[in-house]
């Protein structure tokens, strides 16, 4: 067919079959994939502020545990998930507070404060974090996360329940 600007019958069939096939694959494929990943595309709403304790009940210098529960609607069900962390009052100053998340930055196990070790220990792969959340030992790639907090006039501490990266 060289020299002719007509396409051959064979090529025409090839191109149209390809085009129609591609169209059908798209019509079937896109809805299928969208259907499967649909829940993953939903945005997680930022939570409402959570009260986590009163200033006067919290000792100075040692991490004090707190926990809270968030109920979310997942699909056709409400699921309550509990989260937790530690409040560290570094000094008498009511603003000198660090609210750490207890979620290990390695693979998300929960760390515990260990008084004798003077550190947060992770039960999963033996990570060790300092009182202020820095990595002392083990596999975690970064310090513990924290929550932004506020202390009101009566001394109630509230946090925005979205974990922030350290730093």
């Amino acid at each position: 067919m060289s020299g002719s600007n007509h396409i051959s019958r064979r090529d025409f069939i090839k191109v149209t079959t390809g085009a129609i096939g591609g169209f059908i694959a798209g019509v079937l494929g896109i809805p299928s994939i969208a259907y499967m990943i649909s829940p993953a595309l939903r945005e997680d709403k930022a939570g409402k502020p959570m009260p986590i304790g009163k200033l006067e009940d919290i000792p100075i210098g040692t991490p004090h545990p707190f926990s809270f529960t968030i109920t979310k609607v997942n699909g056709w069900e409400r699921t309550a998930a509990s989260y937790g962390g530690f409040i560290l009052r570094k000094s008498e100053d009511p603003n000198d507070i660090l609210v750490l998340s207890s979620r290990c930055t390695h693979l998300s196990c929960r760390v515990n404060w260990n008084e004798t070790a003077g550190a947060f220990l992770c039960p999963c792969h033996d990570a060790k974090f300092s009182k202020e959340g820095e990595v002392l030992d083990g596999p975690p790639p970064e310090p513990l996360g924290h929550f932004t907090h506020e202390v009101d006039a009566e001394g109630y501490i509230t946090i925005i329940p979205v974990e922030q990266k350290a730093g």
């Binding site: 809805p31 299928s32 969208a34 259907y35 649909s38 829940p39 595309l41 699909g75 056709w76 069900e77």
Partner: peptide, 20 residues
Amino acid sequence: DHAYDSIQYIMTEVQFGWLV
């Protein structure tokens, strides 16, 4: 408890759920 709700979810929330 959930059969009816899960189908409601397919029909109203899941993309192309109504189609499937």
